[in-house]
Design a protein around this nucleic acid. Structure first.
Lengths: 100, 100
DNA sequence: TTGACATATCGGTAATTATAGATATGTTTG
DNA sequence: CAAACATATCTATAATTACCGATATGTCAA
């Protein structure tokens, strides 16, 4: 973790919807309906569910999630036509340790 | 700490200069010259020193610091005509705990 | 292969933020 | 009180980000 990387993460956390997504993903089963094909949330939540919950457009949320993945806040796993997102606790830890 | 407050902090940390200030203030004696009137850095560093180190204008840095104080990232102590800024470790802790 | 669906990217406009200079406020000192 | 100095606030413009609709890409299932 360096200053530039940490600032990129700061940018992601500078928007209430994006920060909210990070919070929702702490407990997916609490905030999202179960997926049709997957029985668990091991790889997180699909883009559509997140998008619907935010109330923003598909393109906006897709861009959010892409950037959040780029800076390492989220991990994206593809299963068929779905992309599942989960928190990257490793990066979160590095970020918080860098800050304090 | 709630989502709105955490996002305000995120905004402060979304700019490289502001994040840098947080880092400098971890070890003031390492990054700033000693003050003329105060022998220690117990209350942090004066605005002028921070401003000079950033290379940005006085008004810009003053606004940065004001906002960083408003969201609780910094503590401002006035000594005569100088304002001294130091990190607010309490808020930083609450923020990092909220995120993880 | 084609249609349906999930996600990503592009291109544009509105909103917000960055940043500075000018000016105001508050404090010390002569 | 007046001058000098430290900091804060105001006003304006440039740069960036927010957000959407349209379109492209990728995948599955018939």
């Amino acid at each position: 973790m360096n200053l530039k990387h940490a600032t990129e993460i700061g940018k992601c956390l500078s928007n209430q919807t994006r920060f909210q997504i990070m919070e929702w993903l702490k407990e997916p089963e609490k905030h999202f309906p179960p997926h049709e094909t997957l029985k668990h949330f091991n790889d997180g939540v699909c883009v559509t569910y997140i998008q619907e919950k935010t109330g923003l457009s598909q393109s906006t949320v897709s861009t959010y999630l892409t950037n959040m993945e780029k800076c390492g806040l989220l991990i994206c796993t593809r299963h068929g036509k779905w992309s599942y997102l989960k928190r990257n606790e490793e990066t979160i830890k590095l970020f918080t340790e860098f800050l304090k």
